[in-house]
Design a protein around this nucleic acid. Structure first.
Length: 277
DNA sequence: AATTCCTTCAACCGCTATGGC
DNA sequence: TGCCATAGCGGTTGAAGGAAT
């Protein structure tokens, strides 16, 4: 017994959208909205298309402020960093790139970025060995970093890979702080804590140009300021103040493979920090 | 100029998540 | 609590166009 199809495929048009269909859909959605029901929308709009197809066309192509092609170096770095941390969760990655869709990011990764990474001599995190390959990349923070104009960040809560990794290595961490449901004002970057200690002093800017290799060496630089900002490390399902995390020797306790699944770090503004501590 | 191969990316497929009843 | 409809997501496909032969 098969699955119930979402629409009668013999009654709907498939394949590429014509400009007329695009116009019809665009005009309808701009005038009436989706009504919270894509399945019913094509009939109302006078389109011979499946509701799913309409939804996809709108989200990936017709909705306002969509950007196509021309990924910047900064976007590359964000994708690389997030893919390294959370894997192929394209919708989460795309949410960090204004104007980009999950489909775009996925296609870009599969056709260009992955090859770029391989050409640079680095395999995916899960297959990196203890050889001598090294890859460098830059993370460029938003221009007005930090505080008020940081990238909105969707917390990495779902994956247990870090916890599984720690469990396998029989490592226990200090008690984690709970991550609130609505995390705002944070900026993420992937760093190896042992090699790249996060600042314990308040900072106003950082130069997150660093290199990563499978021995977890590299460098990062940070600038202090009078801003009362703090860093917290996001680790699996909780937060750790960085002074605690920096005292934890990861390289001592993890294998080369395991250390490639490094935790993610998040920068939090002072107001946010004080609201949760 | 013709053919084949390769790359790109829009669109589809099928599964899971979510929310309403 | 269970069922159903729909939304959302990630993997995959295939048409189109460019590059190579």
């Amino acid at each position: 017994m098969g699955r119930t199809p979402c629409c009668d495929k013999t009654q709907v048009k498939r394949g590429p959208w014509s400009p007329e269909e695009d116009n019809t859909l665009k005009n309808y959605v701009e005038k009436h909205g989706t009504g919270g029901n894509w399945i019913a929308l094509p009939q109302k709009a006078g389109l011979k298309r499946c509701g799913k197809s309409c939804r996809l066309r709108w989200l990936n192509y017709l909705r306002p402020n969509i950007k196509h092609g021309g990924f910047t170096e900064e976007e590359d770095n964000i994708i690389l960093s997030l893919y390294h941390n959370i894997g192929s969760r394209w919708s989460v990655i795309a949410s960090q790139l204004p104007g980009r869709t999950d489909n775009d990011v996925k296609n870009y990764w599969n056709t260009k970025l992955k090859k770029k990474l391989l050409a640079a001599g680095k395999t995916s995190p899960s297959t990196t060995t203890a050889a001598t390959t090294t890859t460098s990349f830059n993370l460029t923070p938003p221009s007005s970093f930090p505080a008020d104009n940081m990238l909105p960040y969707f917390p990495i809560l779902e994956t247990n890979s870090h916890q599984e990794m720690l469990a396998a290595a029989q490592i226990s961490l200090p008690e984690l702080m709970e991550i609130p449901e609505n995390v705002e004002n944070s900026y993420t970057c992937g760093l190896f804590p042992a090699a790249n200690p996060l600042p314990q002093e308040p900072v106003s800017s950082l130069s997150p140009s660093f290199s990563v290799d499978n021995n977890a060496s590299g460098s990062s630089s940070w600038t202090t300021s009078s801003e009362d900002d703090k860093f917290l490390a996001e680790f699996g399902s909780g937060l750790l103040p960085c002074d605690v995390l920096n005292s934890f020797d990861f390289q001592e306790k993890l294998s080369d493979d395991q250390i490639n699944y490094h935790p993610s770090f998040a920068y939090y503004s002072s107001s946010y920090y004080s609201s949760i501590t």
